[in-house]
Design a protein around this nucleic acid. Structure first.
Lengths: 234, 234, 234, 234
DNA sequence: AATGAATGAGGGTTCATTCAT
DNA sequence: GATGAATGAACCCTCATTCAT
């Protein structure tokens, strides 16, 4: 998943151990840092702790990243691989009906992002946005906007094929985004702290949410009689 | 309920004017602290800054709150509205149909929480949950669960009256919660950092979202034929 | 001597002790810092040590000076009081002959600068010039150049009154400056490290030097016959 | 005399070319170190930088010098010329008059020390004396004192031959030393930082200084009437 | 011998907290 | 009660030094 990890991955070959470790270092550090930043936030994470979790000393961390802030930025960059082109292609070739496409989209998002450690990044950025506005802007540009364009393209396909009826594209897009954000924040914030007498199964939630949204999007003749927005206040 | 409220003695009593400022101190500190904690997070907020914004000296802050952490907890307690009883009553007496009730519920949430400074608390808690698990648990208990019970009651009413068809109560509840969480995080995190070429109108978004969800909830004879969730279980 | 010291000087009045200490702090810190910087150089002086010598904690130092570098700059500024105007005036009114004037000038320099702790500043700046080029330039501007103008004025007076014969004004000025620099470096560098089997008496050295220079400057008819410089030009 | 010289084996022997670089290592390191120590001082010079400038790795530096401090001492030892015997011989054979001898002495000092990189050592030692008292003492012993003996011998020759009249031998010696120290400190400290609107030509300065001093030393019948030092003793 | 990755003690700086006034 | 000067623990970061390769 991570470029660095990938490089470091060739591990059982005959190679000087020192050499191999050197190549693996940045990846190990970024790994450790991701966990800790997600868990405790930027400020509460101590550089030494990151180093320790990566199995190196404090000094080594600063051998690879010039400052804690740069480490943070590297963590973000590392985990934002622009996978959107690939996904676009994948959806370009999708042949089923659009409701299935949306279901697949959300399922795939969960499997590849939501359920993976990458989701921590979103939590991290949302939590630290105000302290790292440039990172936030970068993320907006590199992740949020491409993601929303992808969703919008699916919705548009549904509309074009007469499958969906969408009153407001922008807000429909947010409707699909919201449960993802919600899920991530649950997973990494409240959910991590709360006794599990009731735990949500994210996959079921995603499915349930997809169906609920779909019922809303599905075009039907009688839909016109429902009070649509536009009613909308102020 | 709130310890801090108790200390501050802020009721609607009639107090001598000259006593006013002194009595108001803790409230002003909590106010300032809320703003700063929401804006920068717990760790990045300096005690002195809070004091300065409240117009008092650093020492005074510690006169009212024994530590920064206690200040944080007081901020949370102070701003966690225990208004659910009141809202329960309000909805108990609601006489319209349930779709209107849900619309009204979301609208009212936006007006009283989402649009007000109280929304900052949610952002704060979600961001800091991992560092303050007891606060998170407290919030879960005092806010999230009552809130969800309220929503669930509305949904149940719709089901009971034959207006809604809800396959899974829990996840339907989350469907209504998610856009609220999403809205708050946008408002206080990313949204605060990103150039406003496209800004969402939260009220319109809430409306749009309500309608989308409603379309999903609305009971109709043919609905049974839609593939329900449970389908793509892993 | 120091502005801050002067302010702090009003010490036996009835004043809150805390208040008084606050006013005295910067001066005490600058005092301690001067000693240590002169003794050990900038890098080898630890902030904590400065604080300790001033009788305060490390944190207090940074209450008054935002960084070690700013402390250094403050030490330099503090000790470079532009006394040259005052000295100019003093010499303007001088009524004796110019040889006496030069003798007086060097004597006074020794008493007021060379023998005082202010001389440490010169040593400090000369030693650290390469690491603080802006400080060096500042010193050049504020101290060296005014000092040399003063000396040059004296020499010019001697020439104008027919007492001196000066072939090259610039280099004559350096001839007077050199023993001062020499004396300071001896005092604060080598001299401080070397067993005192032979110690120079600075005052006698200054006198001796003055006489030697004066013999060189004294205009006499036969001087023309001495081989002047210009001879062994490269 | 020099330990480092011994290690480096740098004599004028004919060595195999391929061995050359290896054998030259310590010398190259000392060279680089001298430059950097002179430029930035001991503390501000980083071991890695020295190694880099010498074209080797950090580890190699510590292969030849057990510590940075030992490197410093080696730099000093290496560059402290024990040339005084040679110079003594040279001056023993000098046949001109003593004023010319003094002129020659200062000129030669400038050419061989002042103008060369060797002058950096003096700056270095003067700047770092307090942190390396043993080095300072060593320098005093090995350089300053032999140098002063040499000067004193010249002065004595002048006195013996009736060319000079010297009231105080010690201070006269310092009079000749001072401009050299002054010149070195200018060259390596202030002078390196200051805009060159006025730059001194060291050779001319040395000449000028020699003439000024000579005028002071030259014995003449009327000299007795000048107020000698001893006058304004405190 | 040479390398350069790794170490960790050391020092500058911050800031919550204390306490004399 | 209120103040703000003082404190010192904690943390980031540097860099001389070590050592496996």
């Amino acid at each position: 998943m991570s470029l660095t990890k990938f490089i470091a991955g060739r591990s059982d070959d005959v190679q000087a151990k020192r050499e191999r470790r050197k190549e693996a270092r940045p990846g190990e550090l970024l790994d450790a840092a991701l966990d800790l930043f997600v868990e405790k936030g930027f400020a509460a994470t101590r550089a030494e702790e990151v180093a320790a979790r990566a199995g190196v000393s404090k000094g080594t961390l600063f051998l690879y990243f010039p400052s804690k802030e740069e480490l943070f930025k590297a963590v973000v960059r590392e985990n934002i691989s622009g996978r959107f082109q690939e996904w676009n292609d994948e959806f370009e070739k999708f042949e089923g009906d659009t409701p299935d496409m949306l279901r697949y989209c959300m399922k795939v998002w969960w499997e590849r992002i939501g359920a993976s450690r990458a989701s921590g990044i979103t939590k991290l950025i949302i939590s630290e946005a105000r302290n790292f506005p440039d990172i936030a802007a970068f993320y907006q540009h590199e992740v949020i906007e491409p993601g929303q364009r992808l969703i919008r393209r699916i919705l548009q396909r549904g509309v074009d094929r007469g499958e969906f009826q969408v009153a407001d594209m922008d807000y429909a897009t947010f409707s699909i985004t919201a449960p993802m954000v919600f899920l991530i924040m649950m997973k990494h914030s409240m959910g991590a702290c709360v006794a599990r007498d009731f735990v949500m199964d994210p996959e079921r939630y995603i499915n349930s949410q997809a169906e609920t949204l779909l019922k809303g999007f599905l075009a039907r003749p009688e839909d016109g009689k429902n009070k649509p927005e536009g009613r909308s206040r102020k």
